[in-house]
């Protein structure tokens, strides 16, 4: 199929579409009334649920902060608390920014640039969240152990003997997979942005 054939096929399809108009007044009005089912709404819902879980956990740590009676447990507690409070906020804000891309007043180029940038930011945050979440598995264990059982895990080395190596190996493969996936998505987004400037 050469370019002339592409044009001819496109034109023939346009003619056929003109002849087979299917939309009725009712269907069109339904489409304007039906709630906009943007995929972001679903993602936002899951992220909001996640954020609520994080904030409940953060509140729990905050409530029992006084139980963390050594400098290292307190440090881990503050780190965990910080992650639980900041990450969901950043992700939700990033999602909101994507939804705010102005479809009406932006031209195609502006919408594409803004969308690609915001999507990259969201992807970055999501990846960061995964890494931090994994790191938090290590940092939160002693915190919750102390809060729930009053037990300082640093004083009983046996748990760490199996916990850290297992987590280390798992994290290595997980991080490698995450980084590769992230690179491939952002690289293709970057290509589009670079091409815009050419």
């Amino acid at each position: 199929m050469d370019l002339d054939e592409i044009k001819a096929t496109w034109s023939q399809m346009s003619d056929q579409l003109e002849q087979q108009k299917k939309l009725t007044d009712k269907i069109i009005l339904e489409m304007t009334q039906q709630k906009y089912k943007n995929k972001f709404s679903k993602i936002s819902m899951y992220e909001t649920i996640g954020a609520v879980v994080c904030y409940v956990m953060a509140f729990y740590i905050l409530l029992y902060m006084k139980e963390l009676d050594t400098w290292y447990l307190l440090t881990l507690g503050i780190f965990t608390l910080g992650c639980l409070l900041v990450m969901p906020f950043l992700v939700l804000r990033s999602l909101k920014n994507i939804q705010r891309v102005d479809l009406v007043n932006s031209n195609y180029k502006e919408a594409l640039i803004k969308y690609t940038q915001e999507k990259n930011r969201l992807l970055f945050l999501q990846r960061l969240g995964i890494y931090l979440g994994f790191f938090m598995l290590c940092t939160s264990l002693p915190v919750f152990s102390k809060i729930n059982n009053g037990k300082d895990l640093f004083l009983s080395a046996t748990t760490w003997l199996w916990y850290l190596p297992v987590m280390g190996v798992f994290f290595f493969f997980f991080a490698r997979w995450g980084y590769r996936s992230y690179r491939s998505i952002t690289d293709s987004a970057e290509n589009i942005l670079n091409e815009m400037d050419q």
């Binding site: 943007n38 995929k39 891309v101 195609y108 594409l112």
Partner: peptide
């Protein structure tokens, strides 16, 4: 065209 293309562009694909 502008709104239709922008909508298509900024839509997340499954």
């Amino acid at each position: 065209y502008r709104i239709a293309l922008n909508t298509a562009l900024t839509r997340i694909r499954k």
